Simulated assay, not measured.
Amino acid sequence: MSRVLPLLRRLLPLALVLGVVGMTVPDSAVRPTEISLVKLRGAEGVDVGDDVIWILAVGSDARPGEDMTRSRGDAIQLVGLNTRTGAASAIGIPRDSWVPIAGHGSNRVNAALYFGGPQLFGRTVGNLVGVQPDYVMVTRFPFFENMVNDIGGIYVDNPRPFADQYLKPKAFPKGHIKLNGYSAMAFSRIRKSLPGGDFDRSANQQRVLRGIQARIATRSDQPGFIERGVMSVMRNMDTDLAPSELFQIAHAVAQVDPRKIRSCVVQGSFGTIGGASIIFPNVAQARRYGDAARSDATLGPC
């Protein structure tokens, strides 16, 4: 098997995705409610070898007992994988981006998950970027933390020291640093102490996903690693995908070439609506990213 790339930048939950890379991490301790992978209506099945796969990854803010697929989301990353060329791209969407949501007027982009679940959320982000995702992956943050711990922690390149009085009182130092599960979560979620706010947070989420994929790369050549990961996911996730489709997605992640990875964050301007802080996204920029990456998952300069 070819070496795996530091995928995103991975997104997902958080990412999350925080998240797509989580499908290749065997973890029998994950609870069934910790991760959901949904195929969007109208999306075709994966055909590894000549398709570009788009996965929208989001971390759910759902509290224990709440439906994570009907809550407000965080760590929003639209990830493209080119299964033929090995290229990959990640487009970060700040969670406070003010966008139209079909049937609900305009609101923060993460409200689409609350209003209509993964289907409406996928369409909303797709309308902003101009690329409709094939899948939406939703995770809880405890799943993300457990995943990072299970692979032995990750390394990220932090461009600036920053802290948070609640999540991380002792600052993350600048440089190449190691993060455990909790620290990776905090690194992905802190916003107020960053000079670029939501924009810098989204970029940090992409750094965490890169670290996850790079760590997974050290185990990617182990016989049966992806197969065990897919079977573990099937036992512990809520999905409408067949095992064969999950297996193909996992292999698509593993085939990404680290030299062909690019990530960008949709920028915008800060504002207030009804007294609430929001971001007016640069729609032209979002569409430019979508136009560049739609057919081959390749992004140009941000």
Rank of each mutant, 00 (worst) to 15 (best):
P6F: 03
P6S: 14
L8R: 11
R9E: 13
L11N: 00
P13L: 12
V25K: 03
R31V: 11
T33H: 01
E34C: 09
I35G: 03
K39W: 03
G42W: 05
E44K: 14
G49L: 07
D50M: 00
D67H: 03
D67I: 05
M68G: 01
T69P: 02
R70T: 03
L78C: 12
L81D: 01
T85E: 12
G86H: 12
G92M: 08
G92C: 04
V99T: 08
P100I: 05
S106P: 08
R108F: 00
Q119E: 14
Q119A: 11
G126F: 01
Q132Y: 07
Y135C: 03
V138H: 04
F143K: 12
N158I: 01
Y166M: 14
P173H: 03
G175K: 01
G181K: 06
Y182R: 13
I190D: 02
K192C: 05
S193G: 08
D198A: 00
R215M: 09
A217Y: 01
I226M: 12
R228A: 15
G229Y: 06
V233H: 05
V233L: 14
D238S: 10
D238Y: 01
T239M: 09
D240E: 09
F247Y: 14
F247L: 11
Q248C: 06
A250E: 08
H251F: 09
P258K: 11
Q267D: 12
G268P: 00
G268T: 05
G271C: 07
G274P: 10
F280V: 04
N282F: 03
A286T: 00
D291P: 07
S295K: 03
L299I: 09
